[in-house]
Design a binder for these strands. Structure first.
Lengths: 329, 329
DNA sequence: CTGAAAGCGCTTACAG
DNA sequence: CTGAAAGCGCTTACAG
């Protein structure tokens, strides 16, 4: 293995001159620099990043916890975080927790000891029991894309999910819908609440059972719940699905009842992840600013908090019109 | 920051005795070990992994290149690799290339300099131009889940995709199907070839245009191609879709033509990733041994190749029966 | 079983 | 602009 010392000898300088050339921290006379660069090329020298990390105290690596990458939303988050890190010269150490506390604990232990400069934790996860570990971690911890149950004491960059639900509700109200249902995952009560508020503010109080919770946030679970709800309340003209797969399930359930989307039923989805494409219909959807969220979370994690810096950020979602909503008739 | 030296002083020993306790490499007298462990606990000592890496020459980290994590198959591969690594005490550095050669090159550069002990490259990727870089990488490189265009000179762990197509074909022939179509992604010619071979071996030569290539491997692309094909050859009784999304598209296209799956049309999918659930029907599918593939790739990457060790492995897929195939009538 | 020494390959003040 | 020295926090033979 060729070291900085080897390059230095070849170029007839000392190794810190080589270091100066490589890091660019200190200016080097052009002629010297040329000799050093030639030596680097001839020897095929590659700086040892581990040695650099030990000397500088920074590993140029950031850890990211996500529940899974098998859910399109988190897959997108991972790629956005990766992009943001790459732009800043950092690498990504990925840990999927599968919502398993024990896994999270093991990963946390593996990250201790300076192997990351910061840790991003995306998605509602049960951190109970790890809070002490996290609190005296030797690196900054930033929470990202959390909807509820935010543990105190950590910076967080997330989306105003309540506002997302509100946007969906306002959109449907603007189209004249009155009898609406919410098809929700158990974890999405905040989104449902925002939706309800939009209707209330516009003079329509949705009944208590307007929110139908799917036993599972899967196609099957959503399909069953949607079928059930639409049979129960056949006069329903609009559905807000808090999750993309649930939206597809709602469309299919409506279709199986002989109803056409959007003519007979309007459907608003949440987050236009690739799964949305599967329905064959571009869904009207609440869109989350994933890229902005990733970038701000990374910036927050990498820039040490100084007085006057925002320690938490709530980003606004938007509504992307599609072909799945139409005026009520 | 508390170091090994601090622990040593506290316990009244030298730091290499602390090292012996921490690594467990050398036996330590129980009484001494107890004192050391007490000191570690009192001081909250965590070994600096970067320093250890520099001393040992191993970072206990493995890099993984995948085209993307937004495709369910690769999402699964990432999680399987992560599991395999965790079991062996390694961490995962993730790089998604997005099939962009320039991204791959940058990532490769970022991994040089001993920041990983090995690199896994999953999924057909265009490595042209990076081959020299890879060839004299300072760490082992293992290819995994490649279907075609295998660059020579690297160990590879992959699936016999041709055999997967063959399984699909045999299954449909066993059900008595004769007029079959293949709905394929441009990259899946190997799977289509295996399918064709199964029919040929059973006495049925599929016409040249039996393989329909979707312009894009998306729902939309597959839907259009399937609709086109089924209109073109209305006597078709079975479809082999080389990709899960294409299978869902085929089911939907058939339905839109008033045909019922599996009664009027049998559909065999490839790889039962979560996307398959969206169709609402459990699809009969070729199943890839992702877990075995990940484990063997990791083992191959971590165990230095010795004479007599298999340097490449081809794993067998299987066929998982579902509700989307039935006897031809 | 425990201790003293050298070394892993860099960077960082600090002189010149 | 360049050089000599110390240090980052570990591990690894090697004596005792």
């Amino acid at each position: 293995m060729v070291t900085m010392q080897d390059v230095a000898e070849r170029a007839g300088v000392t190794k810190q001159t080589v270091s100066n050339v490589v890091t660019g921290r200190v200016a080097v006379r052009p002629a010297t620099e040329a000799r050093v660069r030639a030596a680097i090329a001839e020897l095929g020298y590659v700086p040892n990043l581990v040695a650099r990390s030990l000397a500088t105290g920074s590993s140029r690596t950031v850890g990211l916890f996500v529940p899974t990458v098998s859910v399109p939303f988190y897959a997108d988050v991972v790629e956005e975080v990766e992009d943001a890190l790459e732009e800043r010269g950092y690498r990504l150490l990925l840990c999927t927790t599968r919502l398993d506390g024990e896994r999270a604990r093991r990963h946390l232990a593996a990250l201790a000891g300076r192997s990351v400069d910061a840790l991003l934790i995306a998605g509602d996860q049960d951190l109970t029991g790890h809070l002490p570990l996290l609190a005296d971690a030797r690196f900054p911890v930033v929470l990202c894309a959390w909807e509820a149950a935010l543990p105190a004491g950590f910076p967080v960059v997330t989306v105003d999910y309540e506002h997302g639900g509100h946007l969906a509700g306002r959109h449907l109200r603007a189209l004249g819908h009155e009898r609406a249902l919410v098809l929700a995952s158990p974890a999405h009560t905040v989104r449902a609440a925002g939706f309800r508020r939009a209707f209330r503010e516009d003079g329509v109080e949705l009944p208590g059972d307007a929110v139908r919770t799917a036993a599972e946030p899967t196609f099957r679970g959503g399909f069953a719940a949607a079928l059930d709800a639409l049979r129960d309340r056949p006069d329903t003209t609009a559905v807000f699905a808090t999750h993309d797969v649930l939206a597809v399930a709602a469309v299919e359930a409506a279709r199986s009842l002989g109803r056409v989307v959007p003519d007979d039923l309007s459907v608003v989805a949440h987050d236009d992840t690739p799964a949305g494409l599967l329905s064959g219909t571009a869904l009207t959807s609440v869109t989350l600013p994933k890229r902005a969220m990733a970038r701000q979370a990374v910036d927050l994690a990498l820039a040490p908090a100084r007085p006057g810096t925002a320690v938490s950020r709530l980003l606004l979602p938007s509504l992307t019109p599609g072909e799945s909503t139409a005026p009520a008739r």
